[in-house]
């Protein structure tokens, strides 16, 4: 098995747009935007690829902070940004096609933003 190199660069909300624009100017493709919640902190990963070289930008924000959308640079970002909004409840401003929370409708609002599901009942106790 070949272990791919994991390039990771930390960025701040202020430099987000600039860094993503630099990726696009470098002819890179947006692979995905993903989010992870670590305690009270959210990490948003922006992944790019060019000729099989995989690169990531990592934006770390506290909960409650708004993030600007990058869909003005890469249109396809709207899919991922709506998803992050619907699952984590992070406000992302200026999404090209903003579904305003209707992209993925879930029975619990912002399921990944709320407390861990470990505390819930085990499946045997569920109805």
């Amino acid at each position: 098995m070949i272990r791919e190199e994991q390039k990771m660069q930390d960025i701040t909300p202020d430099s987000l747009i600039r860094s993503v624009q630099a990726m696009k100017d470098g002819g890179k493709r947006l692979v995905q935007i993903g989010c992870a919640r670590i305690g009270d902190i959210f990490e948003i990963n922006y992944s790019f690829d060019k000729d099989y070289n995989f690169e990531n930008l990592k934006l770390t924000i506290p909960s409650g902070l708004e993030v600007p959308s990058v869909s003005g640079i890469y249109t396809c970002a709207f899919v991922y940004e709506n998803e992050i909004h619907d699952l984590y409840g992070i406000e992302i401003t200026g999404i090209a096609i903003d579904f305003k929370g209707t992209f993925i409708r879930t029975s619990i609002k912002y399921p990944f933003g709320v407390v861990s599901s470990k505390e819930e009942d085990a499946c045997q106790n569920k109805l």
């Binding site: 879930t106 029975s107 619990i108 399921p111 599901s117 819930e120 085990a122 569920k126 109805l127």
Partner: peptide, 17 residues
Amino acid sequence: SGGVFRECYNVMGGIDT
């Protein structure tokens, strides 16, 4: 019954619900 996904937050259970 919901199977392996029974514990998922968005799964309400089998069709008979």
